[in-house]
Amino acid sequence: MPSPARHLAVVPALNEAATIATVVGRIHAALPQFDVLVIDDGSTDDTGRVAEEHGARVVRHPFNLGIGGAVQSGFQFALDNEYDYMVQIDGDGQHDPRELGKLMDVMSSDPDVDVVCGSRFLSKDLKYPSPISRRTGIHLFAFLLSRLVDGRISDPTSGFRLYNRRAIQLFARDYPHDYPEVEAVLMLHHHRLRLRETPVRMFARGGGASSISGSGKSAYYMVKVLLALFVGLARRRPVPEPDGPPAITAHHAL
């Protein structure tokens, strides 16, 4: 390669002013080669300003788009600015940037791998503290996905993922809306991109509120993701091509 590879760490954040400085600082300390981009997804507190003061670039959404839209902005930024690798690290302090080295090692050891996903469940000695209901749901998705994509997926809801350029291009164009992680695994499979998991340690949440909390919401999450999985199997995912129809068109009726 003529120039050294460029790395971007994307931190989606919604009202995480209390923890964002720590997260950005940790990334800078652990991985100086990574530029840090904070996606301020319509925060009403000082998340964006705090992140900027701590040396991160900040993309501010005019209103809340949800985690899928936030991460997709990261993909688009990575694509626009010609980054070779992008990692998603959540703004609540759940993901440990020191574990990112493991993802990088897997990515560099196998040139066929497009996405490396940090899994909480691959290793017995790295325990992740989470309620049994949450784990049951995750394992159900893991079971279904493993059947669908012909390969073992242990932690399909983990957002701690490292993407190469091919994956960045795919997801900049099309990334699921609400709870994207599970469906994204399916998309990778459809587009013949390779996903590899590696065991990592994750923290319990440092502050802010999870996007999935409360029993009503987690039930909705389950149903929504299951629907997305089964619809995703049969979904037409239009890939915009030259001379083809535009991805989103105003002229469309029943």
Partner: peptide
């Protein structure tokens, strides 16, 4: 049903607009 489809399309379009706007602002 037609209006649900129309609203979905508008939501998609506004998402794309918000993302473009945020990236251009940055």
């Amino acid at each position: 049903l037609h209006f649900s489809a129309a609203v979905s399309r508008l939501a998609d379009q506004s998402k794309v607009l918000a993302q473009r706007l945020a990236l251009v602002e940055e």
